[in-house]
Design a protein around this nucleic acid. Structure first.
Length: 543
RNA sequence: GCAGCUGUAGUGUAGUGGCCCAUCAUGAAGCCCUCUCGAGGCUUCGACCCGGGUUCAAAUCCCGGCAGUUGCACCA
C-alpha cells in the first residue's frame, strides 16, 4: 500500500479480500505443498518471490540543498593548542562532505581571544599537519581571523551607520540587568552618527577593556535571552596580552567576538553549509539576526551532539596546556592525553579515525562511545599488514640443548600468518651455547604441564634446571603455545603501555627484525599491537 | 528560572505511516578455524522513554508527561 497510495482509502475492504486469498493459498500449501504454491506464484507474479533486501544507508546522511561542485564548508578551531580527538570529528565530517560533493572546505583559525585563550604560535602549523595526516591532504583553503580584523571593522562600521548596531558603554553586569528584564539599555537609542564617533574612539584606544562594546541590535524582548542585543566586538588589552603572531601583536585593541567574526567570515567565504556542535545553536540564531541586517542568506546548518569517549578525559585545550606547562604531561603527544598528536604517536590509523566518525554519523544526540569501537576500526586497518614479532616481557633465560631432536640450523616463520607474500622471519641458530628467553609467567605455564611447553612455530621443549631440551619439532602433544626468543636474534627493548592514565615501561627482549621500519605498526604475538617508535622503544596501541 | 535540542539493544547507528514480531556495527556468550590472548567464519543475547490520541495500519503523525543535554560570557 506504500507503493499504491490510491488503495489506501479502501484498506478495510482490501483486508477482507486479501484474507480470503491468503486462506486459499494456505489451503493449497497444506494440500499440495509449498512447491505447488511457488509454481503458481512463478506463473502469475514472479516478482513476489524475490525477497527485497533492505538497503541501509551507509556513511553520512545527505546534506540539504547541496549542489555538487558548489558546496563550501569550514572547520574553525581556536589555535590555542594542537587538536584534540574531539576536533577530529569536525575535520573528518567536513572533509568527507567536501569530497562527496566535490566541493571544498576551509580551515579557519579563530584566534580572536588573546587574553583567555591566547593562540599558541606552533599550533597554526601543527594543526595543518594534523589535518593533512587525518585527511591525507591539506585543507582547500586557510583563513586566519587575526589577518582579517580590518575587514571585520569594515562590516562593523557599516552596520553601525545603518543603525543595526550600537556602542554600549554598560558593564557586562549592568547589561545583564537589562537583558534579564527585557528592557532597552539607554545606549540603544543613540543615533548612528553618535555611535560612529564612539566607534572611532574605541578604535583609537580611548576605552579600556570592559568600558565599551559593539552590540548587534536585535530585540530585547526576544524569548531567548542569549539573542538580546548580543555583543559583536569588544576591547582587549593587547599591550599586556599581545597576540602571539608577530605581525599582529598589539596592533588592534578592538577584537570581534566569535558570533560576529564567524558570521561575517562565513558570508565572505561563501560558506554554504555549516556543521557545528549543538552548543552553538544560539550562535546560528544570533548570526541569522546579523544576516538579516545585511540582507544575506544564512547557510544551511547541521548540528551534532556532544561526544564522550568512556575511557578518555575532557578535551579542554586550555586545561591540557596548563598541565603540560606544569609538567604533569610531557607534551601534547603524551600518550595519556586525548589529543590527535597522542593518537598519531600511539599508532592509530587516520583511516580508522575517519571510519569511526563516519559511523557515528551526524545526530544531535549526545553520544558516549567506547575506545573498543575505535580499536575495532583500527584493527581492521592495521591487522592486514602488521608484521608479527616476538617480544618477551620479563625474560627468563634458559639454555637450549639437543634432546630427542637436534637444534636445527635456523628458525623460520611467516611475517604474517595470512599473507605469505609478506615474507619470512628467519633466525640462524647455533648448535651450541644457545640461550633462549621465555616470559616468567610462561615458565609457570610450563610447570603446570609437566615442565613441557611448545615454542611457537618451533619445537616442544622439556624444561629442567634452567635447561630446555627439544622433545620434538612437530607438536607431540597438545601443549600451550608460547612466544620465545633466542639471545642471538633479540635485543633489549622497552614497551610503553598506558593504562588508566598511568604510563608503564615494560622491559623485555625484542626480536631482531631486519626489515624493521620506524613508526611501523607491528603485532607483538600474544601481547597486542604496538608502534615502533625507535629500535629499542615500542608503544603499545591496543590488543 | 528562561530558552533550545534529543530520546531505537550495554554502546553507536538504519528507519520519516504498511516492506519492521525493527538494520548494521560494536560488545558479551558459545562453537569452528588457526602453531598468537590477533585475524577470519558461524550461532546466540539484546531496543522503539512513558501515557493518551489520529488511522484499517504508528518506531514513524498529534498532545501530555518523564529523562538527559546545551545555551543564557565583553570564550571559542
Amino acid at each position: 500500500m506504500g507503493t499504491y497510495p490510491k488503495a489506501r482509502p479502501h484498506a478495510k475492504d482490501l483486508t477482507v479480500i486479501i484474507k480470503k486469498f491468503v486462506e486459499e493459498a494456505n489451503e493449497l500449501a497444506k494440500k499440495k505443498g509449498l512447491n505447488e504454491l511457488r509454481k503458481v506464484l512463478e506463473q502469475n507474479a514472479p516478482q513476489l518471490l524475490e525477497r527485497k533486501i533492505k538497503e541501509k544507508r551507509v556513511g553520512l546522511p545527505d546534506l540539504k540543498n547541496a549542489i555538487n561542485g558548489q558546496v563550501v564548508l569550514r572547520f574553525a578551531p581556536n589555535p590555542n593548542g594542537p587538536l584534540s580527538f574531539g576536533h577530529s570529528r569536525g575535520i573528518v565530517i567536513n572533509s568527507e562532505y567536501a569530497k562527496r560533493y566535490e566541493g571544498k572546505w576551509i580551515l579557519r583559525f579563530d584566534d580572536t581571544d588573546t587574553v583567555r585563550k591566547p593562540p599558541l604560535p606552533s599550533a597554526y602549523k601543527s594543526i595543518q599537519e594534523e589535518v593533512e595526516w587525518l585527511t591525507g591532504k591539506p585543507a582547500d583553503k586557510i583563513v586566519i581571523a587575526s589577518d582579517r580584523i580590518e575587514t571585520y571593522y569594515k562590516y562593523a562600521s557599516e552596520l553601525i551607520s545603518k543603525g543595526g548596531a550600537y556602542i554600549c558603554t554598560l558593564s557586562a553586569e549592568e547589561f545583564r540587568e537589562f537583558r534579564q528584564t527585557k528592557s532597552n539599555s539607554p545606549d540603544r537609542d543613540r543615533s548612528p552618527e553618535e555611535n560612529l564617533k564612539l566607534w572611532e574612539r574605541m578604535l583609537n584606544g580611548d576605552f579600556q577593556p570592559g568600558e565599551a562594546v559593539v552590540r548587534i541590535k536585535t530585540d530585547m524582548t526576544l524569548p531567548n535571552p542569549a539573542l538580546r542585543d548580543w555583543p559583536a566586538l569588544r576591547i582587549q588589552d593587547t599591550e599586556n596580552n599581545p597576540h602571539p603572531r608577530e605581525n599582529i601583536n598589539s596592533k588592534y585593541k578592538v577584537w570581534p567576538l566569535l558570533d560576529f567574526q564567524s558570521g561575517i567570515e562565513d558570508y565572505l567565504q561563501g560558506v554554504t553549509h555549516i556543521i557545528r556542535g549543538k552548543d552553538l545553536m544560539d550562535s546560528t540564531r544570533k548570526q541569522t539576526l546579523l544576516y538579516e541586517h545585511f540582507g544575506w542568506e544564512y547557510p544551511e546548518t547541521v548540528y551534532w551532539g556532544r561526544v564522550k569517549i568512556h575511557e578518555l578525559g575532557g578535551f579542554s585545550t586550555s586545561g591540557m596546556r596548563n598541565d603540560i606547562e606544569n609538567g604533569k604531561y610531557s607534551d601534547w603527544d603524551d600518550p595519556r592525553l586525548p589529543t590527535l598528536a597522542s593518537m598519531q604517536r600511539r599508532g592509530f590509523s587516520p583511516e580508522a579515525l575517519r571510519n569511526f566518525w563516519i559511523e557515528l554519523a551526524l545526530t544531535q544526540k549526545d553520544i558516549s562511545a567506547s575506545m573498543a569501537t575505535i580499536y575495532s576500526h583500527n584493527i581492521k586497518i592495521i591487522d592486514e599488514t602488521a608484521p608479527r614479532l616476538f617480544f618477551v616481557k620479563n625474560p627468563f633465560p634458559l639454555e637450549l640443548i639437543d634432546g630427542n631432536e637436534q637444534i636445527p640450523s635456523n628458525f623460520k616463520t611467516q611475517i604474517h600468518p595470512e599473507d605469505e607474500n609478506l615474507g619470512y622471519r628467519i633466525w640462524e641458530l647455533q648448535k651450541e651455547n644457545n640461550l633462549i628467553y621465555l616470559e616468567k609467567e610462561d615458565l609457570q605455564l610450563a610447570k603446570e604441564n609437566n615442565n613441557k611447553i611448545r615454542l611457537k612455530d618451533f619445537a616442544d621443549i622439556q624444561i629442567k634446571d634452567n635447561i630446555a631440551s627439544i622433545i620434538s619439532l612437530e607438536p607431540s602433544e597438545k601443549l600451550p603455545i608460547i612466544h620465545w626468543l633466542d639471545s642471538k636474534n633479540s635485543y633489549d627493548a622497552v614497551l610503553e603501555i598506558t593504562r588508566e592514565n598511568e604510563i608503564q615501561l615494560i622491559e623485555g627482549k625484542l626480536e631482531n627484525f631486519p626489515k624493521l621500519k620506524l613508526n611501523e605498526i607491528t603485532q607483538l604475538e600474544r601481547i597486542g599491537y604496538a608502534k615502533i617508535e625507535n629500535k629499542n622503544k615500542l608503544i603499545f596501541i591496543h590488543n
